[in-house]
Design a binder for these strands. Structure first.
Lengths: 102, 102
DNA sequence: AAAACTTTGACTATTTTTGTCAAAACAATA
DNA sequence: TATTGTTTTGACAAAAATAGTCAAAGTTTT
């Protein structure tokens, strides 16, 4: 069960790249990438997409890892997290439906 | 399928209270409460709890409404929202387990 | 021990969120 | 329709959160 930071680190190390190289690709300071990999800074969706491309990693999967992390970050410690997820699912389902009808 | 703002408005109107009164209870400007009810400003968890108490509404339910809204706000428009929710669920399950073991 | 790489923290800049206020808009009622 | 009560809006300021920069300290590799 990997979070996005760990995933990026795994991919980077698999290639044997230093932070410097990936950070340059993303056009950010390597200190920030270091923090991203350890979950101390956030990524943008655009950065995730760029990284998936860079590492030839499935973009959809990486985005799902990214978004699920965001959710965990927000409600992971809440007592009713599971219930909230369930309701969120229903709301999304509902939104989809009503958006279709307009 | 109500969001937290609509729920609060519903409860407030059921009691026939003006914004002023509920805003005073929360110790915020009535303009902010107006915006909260229309989804233009966010609530804090503490405010939600206070409101549940104020309206004699089930606290758990109101918090679930609140947190599910937060999730929707973050990922509701994303293509892979549903998948992200599923993975988030697994991550929460996982977190629970590992936290038990320490 | 030198070189390459990573982490840390202090500091600044930028962006986002929040609060305040008064005027405008709206609604209900005399 | 004038008056009163309520809600909405938007401009502005204040505060908080987030992001970027940089160099020194720490770690790993050779």
């Amino acid at each position: 069960m990997q979070n996005i930071g760990e995933l990026i680190r795994t991919l980077r190390e698999k290639e044997g790249y230093p932070l410097r190289k990936v950070a340059a690709f993303l056009d950010i300071d390597q200190a920030i990438l270091s923090k991203i990999e350890r979950g101390q800074r956030k990524l943008t969706k655009e950065q995730v997409i760029k990284l998936a491309d860079f590492f030839n990693y499935n973009e959809k999967e990486m985005l799902i890892t990214f978004f699920s992390d965001q959710i965990i970050y927000e409600i992971g410690n809440e007592e009713y997290a599971k219930e909230a997820l369930k309701v969120a699912e229903e709301k999304i389902e509902y939104l989809k439906k009503t958006n279709k009808d307009e």
